[in-house]
């Protein structure tokens, strides 16, 4: 085989650059903003990248100039001026300007939500998210999924139940740490509907990387309908495998840890499962939704999420696991 046949085909630079930059898009990218805060941060990033490029080019140009002996030919005074201006004054001014720009956007990012704004409290727990819609109207709790109205500022109250976590939806804004015994706040304002992804941005134990959540930004009327549906109790399946799964849910002690509103299950240790079947993922963004996902979670809990506090139920007969998964899938 000749050498020429091994070389990769030449790709025009603009196309290669576009393909490379397309990696910056997606549901979890600070460079593909879908919120006011993320827009400011993306601008800051590009200004910082531009400033860094200017400093780097200036340093590289000076290095070339020095290697070619230009400074020696220019004489001692010019050498000193080059060092003072190129090595100290210009970098100080560039960095000072970038620092001032970065600081100037901070007050806007840290502002309080206006009165009447949607308020959501989120508690980080190893390794899932307890989400509680505090207002408007009656509070409602769910888990590992946040839906937001487009164009509305939302204030998050953040807590931790165990260790340090950090709440981050890169497409919407900056991250905010969550501390045990202390509340922090974060204001986010989504600008367009879409599906996004949030993550824990502070190492919090062995399954830290499996602590994600789904974020869905909806138009306001659609959001109002969704929130009203979340407030309703679970639609308890009346027959078939799902109904039998409901009985197994009680018989196997699941109700001691999980709440399913509208049934006798009122445990508060684990995630609220009232509408678990309608969520976009299982186990904090770890498994796809549906019966197969629930079945895998129940049987192989610690393979899916090492260190999870929930015991696995792999000892149950397969038909029981299938019934339990059918029950959870039916909770919508």
């Amino acid at each position: 085989m000749g050498l020429s046949s091994r070389t990769s085909p030449r790709v025009p630079a603009p196309i290669a650059c576009a393909a490379w930059l397309s990696g910056c898009a997606g549901p979890q990218s600070a460079l593909d903003p879908a919120g006011r805060g993320a827009e400011r941060l993306a601008e800051l990033f590009w200004w910082m990248a531009g400033g860094a490029a200017v400093v780097w080019l200036a340093v590289a140009a000076l290095a070339v100039y020095a290697v070619r002996g230009g400074a020696r030919r220019a004489g001692g005074g010019a050498q000193r001026a080059l060092i003072v201006w190129g090595g100290a004054v210009v970098p100080t001014l560039v960095l000072g300007a970038l620092l001032a720009y970065g600081l100037s956007i901070l007050p806007g990012l840290l502002a309080s939500a206006p009165p009447g704004a949607l308020r959501i409290s989120v508690t980080g727990e190893q390794w899932w998210w307890r989400v509680r819609y505090e207002s408007p109207g009656e509070a409602v709790e769910l888990a590992n999924e946040i839906r937001l109205p487009a164009g509305e500022p939302v204030e998050f109250t953040l807590r931790s139940a165990d260790v340090l976590h950090s709440f981050w939806i890169p497409s919407l804004g900056g991250k905010m740490d969550m501390f045990p015994g202390r509340e922090t706040r974060l204001l986010l304002e989504p600008t367009r509907p879409g599906r996004l992804r949030g993550v824990c941005a502070e190492y919090c134990g062995e399954s830290h990387a499996l602590m994600a959540f789904d974020v869905v930004v909806l138009e306001k009327p659609e959001f109002a309908r969704w929130l009203a549906a979340q407030r309703r109790p679970a639609a308890v399946p009346a027959g078939g495998a799902a109904a039998r799964g409901g009985e197994l849910f009680g018989a196997n002690g699941c109700a001691a840890c999980h709440t399913v509103r509208g049934t006798g299950a009122d445990g508060v240790v684990g995630p609220d499962l009232t509408h678990a079947g309608g969520r976009l993922s299982i186990a904090a963004g770890t498994l796809p939704p549906g019966r197969a996902g629930f079945g895998r979670w129940l049987a192989k809990t610690h393979e899916v999420k090492p260190g999870a506090l929930m015991p696995h139920f792999g000892m149950l007969p397969p038909e029981d696991l299938t019934a339990l998964a059918a029950y959870l899938e039916a909770l919508r």
Binding site: A88, G96, L99, L103, P107, S112
Partner: peptide, 22 residues
């Protein structure tokens, strides 16, 4: 001394922009 003066101004810069404790 020059470096320390620049660093001191940079450190104080945050107070020039932040108006409250948030």
């Amino acid at each position: 001394s020059v470096l320390s003066a620049v660093a001191t101004v940079y450190a104080a810069g945050a107070a020039a922009f932040m108006r409250d404790c948030r």
